[in-house]
Computed example of a mutant assay.
Amino acid sequence: MRYRELGRSGLSVSEIGYGAWGIGESSWVGATEDESLRALHRAIDLGVTFIDTARGYGESERIVGRVVRERSADQVYVATKVPPKNGIWPAPAGVDPAEAFPGAHIRQSLETSLRASGLDHFDVLQFHVWSDEWMERGDWLETVAELKQAGTIRLFGVSINDHQPQSALRLVRSGVVDTVQVIYNIFDQSPAAELLPACAEHGVGVIVRVPLDEGGLTGRITAGTEFPEGDFRARYFRGDRPAQIERRVAALTADLGISTDELAATALRFTLSDPAVSTVIPGMRSVRNAERNTEVSAAGPLTEEQLAVLAKHAWDRNFYS
């Protein structure tokens, strides 16, 4: 496993982190707690030192906290998220920060997360949505500073609205945020235009989520793929989108000259090819996934020639609209 600096924080984290949404048994169907526990332990055995969870991920905080407490001899950093008080994802224009992240709500959410996890602090506390309209407004920044002073959090971050990397540029340039979490993958390369360079310039750590496009970049979604009732991917890949994915994956692998089995590793290496990225957090709901994803670190970044090919496969679409 290779390690990278998390922005200017002074923390060194595994470049392959652990995305813990899928193990919470909420929006993803099929996870079991026993297998999730084994996968988390195996990931740590293989060098993973960064785990990302959230208050809104069902049982995820509890499961993550249990493993981290059991692995107290290992250095493992845990990030969680505060959901917006108004319950609106993504953050729309015109919302006052007092409606989404008032200080009292931030504190209450953190206290709930600490109880659920059994931890005494989180290394990163992130707002689960963000709007640059909130800069210089509300009491969220003072609250974050007080929580840092109290030692219940180490760093402050935001999870940027899906497919809207430009919505946090003012925050990144302000110097008040330590990390940002953003969707960045072969299909959605938009963060590379402005956000990633801004983060590199201002020392902000970058946590990459959805590197495999919720499974679209694994090669396992085809025209006939169906998802169980209650699984969010049934909406994400609704209509003819599985067929669209299959066609685009076929073109992508043909252009690169790789097999479908090599696609997931290539997609992870793509995200890690930008030095502004601190860690990438694929979901790992099984031991086998933990082993496959962590071994990617040893392969290093893609070549300039490969990146040039992949630049042609950016896909301007939003699966939520």
Rank of each mutant, 00 (worst) to 15 (best):
P228R: 06
E226S: 13
L212W: 02
G216Q: 01
G215C: 04
T218L: 04
Y236H: 14
P242V: 06
R241N: 11
A243L: 12
I245A: 03
T225V: 04
G230Y: 09
R235A: 15
E246K: 09
E246N: 11
P228D: 03
I245N: 02
T225Q: 03
T218E: 02
R238P: 09
E229M: 08
I221W: 02
P228A: 08
I245T: 09
G216A: 06
F232I: 09
E229N: 07
D231P: 04
G219V: 07
F227H: 02
D240C: 09
A234V: 06
A234H: 08
R241Q: 11
A243G: 11
Y236K: 09
R241I: 09
E226V: 13
G224F: 10
Q244L: 15
G216V: 02
G224I: 10
A223H: 11
D213H: 15
E246S: 11
G224P: 07
P228G: 08
Y236R: 10
G215Q: 03
T225W: 04
Q244H: 12
E226N: 13
Q244M: 15
Q244V: 14
T225N: 05
Y236E: 09
D213T: 10
Y236C: 07
I221Y: 00
E226Q: 15
R233N: 03
Q244R: 12
R241S: 12
D231R: 00
F232V: 11
Y236W: 14
P228F: 04
G215N: 03
G219K: 03
F227C: 01
